[in-house]
Design a protein around this nucleic acid. Structure first.
Lengths: 343, 343
DNA sequence: ATTAGATTTGAAAGCGCTTTGAGAATGTGG
DNA sequence: CCACATTCTCAAAGCGCTTTCAAATCTAAT
């Protein structure tokens, strides 16, 4: 059942039927109701291909697999992607995935997507401190929105969480609890979120003139083993010089830190304070951590849903200023933070 | 630059240009070369939307997010998806994702995808022992291919690994090493892969008349904590009654088992033998396990790539019999298996 | 009754490709 | 030189929708 058949069924023109179904104002409510009923009755579904050809819009959002892959990265990507897909379905958009494969660079993927006009917009994830992608897409004329930010001053649409604020709050909490030696176990430093977190962390310490030795800050892939190794290194120092508190960029890192502590007989929440960022991935519960973990939390799946909303709004209303949203990350205090042990 | 412009540029008809570009035989090699050069020169890309409308093919493969989500499930799905996307790109296909959201059932997702004709075929993952999806899709006339199998006898295209054979081989190896008390820590039993593995495991024991107490077989979500809990339960028995070997459906489960052993002072590869299935997810290395883990291995990413190949071949050649491929899983013997301790 | 204005409908022209059915050009054997 | 097959090319008809522009109908004011 296509539009023509439906319209002859109804004794109306394709124009009118099309307008009735698409909510145009110039069709009377009476005919609109009649058309809707008939469409429903015959199970009419407009052809996506035809509509795409006619409108030039593909009704599709594009994402590409992150170039660097690791376990947590995949989990974060999947959770974010899940949010995107779920909201996109609600808005009748499709989400398609690209991937830099073999010799093909990520840039080539974008170029191809643009030339083939297969997507209306692209969603970028895991932006680097200096990320060429927004500029590239702007130059190619492809609408885009970034999950996160870069340090470059150019304007682009984005949704980010307040990484700096979150880690500032975490460090401030620890400082208020009397900690003077705190370490930051961050993610890889070329990612902007990691840079932001470090900035927030440093700002809190500087504000209170707390010294931060260079070796107290490190950034690697956010997997347990790295957290373990770094904590082991830092806790190897004499008791009076080693950190009394750790701030980690992921729960995985934190569980590595916890392991290292345990190995030394140090108890989290008594001898060592621990805060981690929590993206609210299922099965990585801060609540079920031992002890329950104080976190800065912000659900990454919700970000996916929201970013699709923003993206679609941007497409449907190109005149509006570019969306730019920064979500606070809640500081949730549980059992892993306590006043600094007396020196 | 569209086809018409390109063809007038060349002084040829759209027909000829289209045929030249799409490799039809009735155009001379000379003109084909000329057309190709011009297309390249002007950066001509055919419009996907127009082609879709004209051919009725969307050039798109669909997948849906698994209904039950957990960490390993997400990792497996992502790795598989990555394989699919990478091969699909090579074959100029797109991959789009659907998701059962809110009140919408997975069935509704398929129905919608079919009615809207947005995808040419669907790829199903994580099939259950009794899975209604293949029948549903067949009834809806949507081509599909399953990653895995179901127990139902109806014909459908699939690619699976030989789960039964793999776990048969694992159990046989252990039996040959003299083990008489082996436990199976499986995935959730409504998944067909888990049922197949259990069957293979049992078959090996039965062939040698090795007793398998019911409590030696369990199946839950394949996360570390479950492996830990089950091993703890089983190792709680007196030394002469507890398992001397474990076969696990994932490396995550195995690391839970290893933890439980360690807690009891049992050494993997000396006191307890351990084999796990390895889907070759990055960052979950069997090689870096302590000790290096004997595994049945089969890279799930490769399966994604292959399944897209099969799927596309199926679409392009509907007359051929449905593809049905079963991959062996290699048994890789490392340091976690040893002869059974003398009783 | 007439007309301007508002409301509602329709005919037709795309969107850019594929593909059918025919026609022109070329080659081959009698 | 002709009949015939073979090779190459093309005009035109879709695919199913949106959208422009024009026409028809209705309403209210003159």
């Amino acid at each position: 059942m296509n539009l023509r058949e439906l319209s002859t069924q109804l004794g109306l023109s394709q124009t009118t039927v099309s307008r009735a179904l698409n909510g145009f104002p110039e069709v009377s409510e009476e005919t609109r109701a009649r058309v809707r009923a008939a469409a429903e009755l015959h199970g009419y579904r407009p052809s996506a291909a035809a509509r795409r050809l006619a409108t030039g819009q593909s009704g599709t959002l594009g994402m590409v697999f992150p170039g660097e892959r690791n376990m947590l990265g995949d989990l974060l990507f999947t959770e974010f992607l899940g949010g995107c897909v779920s909201k996109a379905s609600e808005l009748s958009y499709d989400v398609t995935l690209g991937m830099a494969y073999g010799s093909q660079s990520e840039e080539a993927v974008y170029r191809r997507a643009v030339r083939n006009a297969r997507v209306d917009a692209m969603i970028l994830s895991s932006p680097l401190v200096a990320d060429p992608r927004p500029a590239l897409l702007r130059q190619l004329g492809m609408p885009h929105i970034v999950h996160g930010r870069t340090q470059s001053p150019e304007a682009y649409a984005f949704l980010d969480i307040d990484n700096e604020g979150a880690f500032h709050a975490a460090a401030k909490l620890l400082a208020d609890l009397g900690h003077r030696r705190m370490a930051l176990i961050n993610g890889e430093q070329h990612y902007n979120f990691a840079a932001d977190r470090e900035r927030g962390f440093r700002r809190a310490l500087e504000a209170r003139s707390i010294d931060l030795p260079p070796e107290f800050v490190c950034g690697e892939a956010m997997v347990e083993t790295n957290g373990h190794a770094q904590a082991q290194r830092l806790l190897g120092a004499p008791a009076g010089q080693r950190p009394t508190a750790f701030v980690c960029s992921s729960i995985g890192l934190a569980s590595g830190v916890a392991k290292a502590c345990r190995a030394l007989g140090l108890i989290i929440g008594r001898d060592v304070a621990l805060i981690a960022h929590d993206d609210r991935l299922h099965d990585m519960g801060a609540e079920t951590f031992d002890p329950p973990l104080t976190t800065t939390q912000s659900p990454i799946g919700d970000a996916g849903r929201r970013i699709v909303e923003l993206c679609v709004a941007m497409l449907q209303n190109p005149a509006e200023p570019l969306p730019a949203e920064v979500w606070p990350a809640d500081l949730v205090v549980r059992q892993s933070t306590m006043p600094a042990p007396s020196p």
